[in-house]
Nucleic acid binder design. Structure first.
Lengths: 185, 185
DNA sequence: CCTAATACGCTACTCGAAGTAGCGTAATCT
DNA sequence: AGATTACGCTACTTCGAGTAGCGTATTAGG
């Protein structure tokens, strides 16, 4: 489901993952998550829908890989805990504000609510790495880390979903102030 | 679009809104938001799909009315501000935990991300009353109230969407502690 | 060079759910 | 009685996710 294949025989996969991800974000940005059909994404990437389904088992899986691509690499965490957390939150808010990223995130999240397989994928491939990183960094219980993630991500996505636009900087700063009172030290 | 009609002539609408709302929540609880099709909701309510569409212009509009029904009346707010806010948060978490309510909420919210008309409906009919109430009660800027709503609702929905289950009480209490540090006084 | 193996692009299909049209019938008011 | 509106029903349109199968292209290895 990823990049170049390891088996030796046969025609290798052409190197179009990056093109597809860019086309996905562009299409979502222009037409919204629902408007970004697999047909349209394929057309924007200059390939065929069947090729997409050869690489990703579902639209949700494609979007998740596209988001993983958009959200890497992870943000830096230094010894200054409050500054690092604030930086990570600004980083997440910024990513969600990038064209197509927030809408794709909210869309796949919506789909996941009703699709246990997709939820599993979202939880395992998307949330788990950040959970592990934060648990190691903060040295707090998994319960608290999970709540931290729920608060940050949930708030940003709720704003995105309610207004259709990313959260403004001054509101991000307000949220940071609030969260740091509990998780800052 | 609501209850008994005011015009005098013609056959009056039968009194089945409450039945439909209950059927909707039951169906969403049993089959999930995506599985709760208009056909199935109609069948569960003992009516016809066309009747649903005579009363609500879309599935999203039906769900929103169903949620308005489930979330009324509003919680009590007393002079004790921290206790009132904590109570309101527990009330919201409890409602979202009721069978079918959280899933319906998350589902319609998901749809709204990609549907400006539905987003408008959600914002106007659902959020606006609570925004007004909280602004009057807290006497704070609309910006801060909106963030408060984003944090509470977003966090609860994110947990619901990520795990498929409502947030546990101890996590709700943790969230209350966090939020009260900023909005408690 | 030839063959096996795999990927590609394409057309055409199935399936399911939202939403619509139209009909005959039921209930209410004047 | 007649006008008016709602109901239940069947049938339909539309659209998007996902699939099947074909001919072709590209690679590795004999």
């Amino acid at each position: 489901m990823q990049g170049t294949n390891t088996s030796s025989a046969g025609r290798p996969r052409s190197d179009l993952n990056a093109v597809v991800f860019a086309a996905t974000r562009r299409t979502v940005d222009e037409l919204g998550y629902a408007g970004a059909t697999m047909d349209r994404i394929a057309a924007a990437a200059g390939t065929a829908k069947t090729t997409l389904y050869r690489r990703w088992p579902s639209k949700g899986a494609l979007i998740i890989d596209c988001l993983l691509d958009a959200f890497s690499p992870m943000p830096e965490l230094t010894e200054d805990r409050p500054a690092s957390l604030a930086g990570a939150i600004r980083w997440l808010a910024g990513k969600i504000g990038e064209p197509g990223v927030g809408a794709a995130f909210a869309g796949v999240f919506s789909d996941a609510v009703n699709d246990p397989a997709l939820r599993e994928l979202l939880s395992t491939r998307f949330q788990a790495p950040y959970l592990a990183m934060l648990r190691d960094y903060l040295g707090e219980s998994e319960q608290r880390i999970l709540l931290f993630i729920d608060v940050i991500t949930g708030t940003l996505l709720h704003r995105m979903g309610m207004t259709g636009r990313p959260m403004e900087d001054r509101d991000v700063e307000l949220m940071i102030d609030m969260v740091l009172k509990t998780f800052g030290e």
